[in-house]
Design a protein around this nucleic acid. Sequence first.
DNA 1: GCCAACGTTGGC
DNA 2: GCCAACGTTGGC
Length: 152
Amino acid sequence: MAYWLFKTEPDELSIDDLAAEPNRSFLWDGVRNYQARNFLRDQVQAGDLVFIYHSSCKPPGIAGIATISRAAYPDPTQFDSSHTYFDAKADPQSPRWFAVDVRYKQKFSEILTLDKLKKIVTLEMMPLVKKGNRLSVMPVSSDEWQCILSLI
DNA sequence: GCCAACGTTGGC
DNA sequence: GCCAACGTTGGC
């Protein structure tokens, strides 16, 4: 069982959206970065736990936890020409982009802000806290996971 | 809205 | 294969 952090814009999909339907599996689509794609496709497994990070909002930070309810499968939006995430170069025989399913687990009583996370020495190796980092799917070590839980 | 960081594209 | 131009991310 591994730990992850996924970024999402809460306007698109937030921890509250997940919490509103706690038994539903939500499609985690739209990952269009190869490094993030490789993590999703090759390493994320059903049962893994994920910090849900809200980005492009005020304040940015970790909002809660979800569980991976289905491992990687081809992201259907890449083949949908009416969709924002459509990719004309994606081939159904050899999909380029992958999605997973997630299910609600926990909402934090308050957002664990990026500002706060940046001040924690144990977390300084996380891509999340590094300037200019744009990785939207990243692994979290067991130490980092425990450290973040202790901050709630 | 600005802009730094950085990933992708495409001409050569 | 290089690299300039361009587009996107995401904090501020």
